[in-house]
Design a protein around this nucleic acid. Structure first.
Length: 418
DNA sequence: TCTGGGGTCCTTTTGCCC
DNA sequence: TCTGGGGCAAAAGGACCC
């Protein structure tokens, strides 16, 4: 834990190690997917375990710390991970279990404060400003959360406590696994400046290269570089942003739920595909899935976009904005198909296709000028009937005929109705 | 070493209207 | 009528995050 020897700028001054004004918590589960998977496989505790897709083209979703010491990390291609750590046990992901565990931890957060901003299944920001009277200092609240989650969910987490989101996030990363770190307001600059530039949120591999080209290696280096230089190298938005972050300035507040901006689905084929019929069938499946999710969330979208990734990994997108927003799978599919056909690809080898709907709004306040007898109306009714059947009998019981595979072998990946 | 799937945000280009 | 340019929205690409 870091300690602040100088009183903070704000109101009441506390003792050293002071969390006064540090009302933002970032809570991050340790090796979440792996930890949850171990709950049902306790015999694997203490062993290197990798969670990842079974296919030939998967990546590592998560790995236990025993596997990480061998260099395995998430997003690494499975093939490579297995080579690095052949003794590791590979387990398939169990998304239902992750969703349940996630729900459990989010409930713990919401019992502390309504100001919870989930970032993903396994991490969230909390603004605990209003919880002090009831639950104590931010640090005490953090320890309470850690104990509760370990107790109720059987997994550990790390908590960063700071005055801004971004410093809280770096703090939780710094004390991982199973730790808690307070960065007092007065210590922020000293905490940040020795860190490598890649630690900053928004600095990935490419930006790191650019910064290295400028001779900038640490956050302190960025802080002492004129904003104009950063803007020239990285663009105005990123330049200003990084400069602010390097001094610990981060105005973003904790916001409970941001509405979705887009909803989509994509699939990487087990092996590259050049058969237009297979592509079309996949676009249909992805369109149906996307539209079903729109309907389930009572939303509609105005723009349909497709993504095509070729065998050499180059990727293109094409988009079309509709006259009025939709949640109808058939409309999404027809648009996606038209976009695909307009590419004029002649048996190109394709690795991935995706469908996405953007410009999302609530179905309730969408302009809805369905005329009687309009073709779309029929599709919408049919799809809503399918939704009802799916709710009663399970997803996949009713599907377009072209997606029903009599042999159970075609399709990519094969999915059986039943 | 051969790269998932879900997203967000930013930048640049393009087409349109006035 | 031609041209320039501002303003805008859509499209396309790319970087990044978990």
């Amino acid at each position: 834990m870091s300690r602040g020897s100088v009183p903070p700028v704000g109101p009441p001054t506390g003792p050293p190690g002071d969390d006064t004004g540090c009302t933002v918590l970032h809570v991050d589960m340790d090796a979440f997917y792996a930890s949850v998977s171990l709950l049902t496989r306790p015999e694997l505790r203490g062993l290197p375990v990798i969670v990842g897709g079974g296919g030939t083209r998967g990546v590592v979703l998560s790995a236990t710390y025993e596997a990480r010491v061998h260099g395995v990390h998430s997003a690494m291609p499975m093939m490579r991970a297995r080579r690095m750590c052949p003794q590791a046990v590979v387990v398939a992901p169990d998304h239902d279990a992750y969703a349940r565990a996630s729900h459990g931890v989010m409930e713990v957060f919401r019992s502390i404060t309504p100001l919870v901003e989930p970032i993903s299944l396994d991490e969230a920001f909390l603004d605990v400003r209003g919880a002090a009277r009831r639950l104590g200092t931010p640090q005490q609240i953090g320890e309470h959360i850690r104990a509760t989650i370990e107790d109720e969910q059987g997994i550990t987490c790390s908590v960063g406590v700071a005055s801004t989101k971004f410093v809280a996030k770096l703090a939780s990363a710094r004390c991982k696994p199973d730790g808690l770190l307070v960065v007092p307001a007065d210590d922020v600059v000293a905490f940040l400046h020795p860190l490598p530039v890649g630690a900053l949120w928004g600095v990935g591999g490419k930006t790191e290269d650019v910064l290295r080209g400028l001779g900038l290696h640490t956050v302190g280096d960025i802080a002492h570089t004129p904003v104009a230089t950063l803007e020239r190298a990285l663009g105005p938005a990123a330049g200003k942003h990084l400069s602010a972050l390097s001094w610990g300035r981060d105005e973003r507040s904790v916001v409970p739920h941001e509405p979705d901006k887009s909803i989509g689905a994509e699939n990487t084929f087990g092996t590259d595909v050049d058969d237009p019929a297979v592509i079309a069938r996949e676009l249909l499946r992805l369109s149906e899935r996307t539209a079903a999710r729109l309907r389930a969330s009572e939303q509609v979208g105005r723009t349909v976009s497709i993504k095509v990734r070729f065998a050499d990994f180059t990727t293109i997108t094409r988009a079309k904005t509709l006259g009025e927003p939709t949640d109808v799978g058939r409309v999404v599919y027809d648009t996606a198909m038209a976009l695909y056909e307009a590419l004029g690809l002649e048996r190109a080898r394709i690795r991935l296709v995706g469908v996405r709907v953007e410009g999302i709004s609530d179905a309730a306040d969408a302009p809805h000028q369905l005329l009687l007898g309009e073709k779309e109306h029929g599709w919408r009714d049919a799809e809503q009937a399918v939704d009802r059947a799916a709710r009663r009998f399970g997803a996949g019981v009713v599907r377009p005929a072209t997606l029903v595979d009599p042999s159970g072998t075609a399709g990519n990946p094969p999915r059986r109705a039943q």
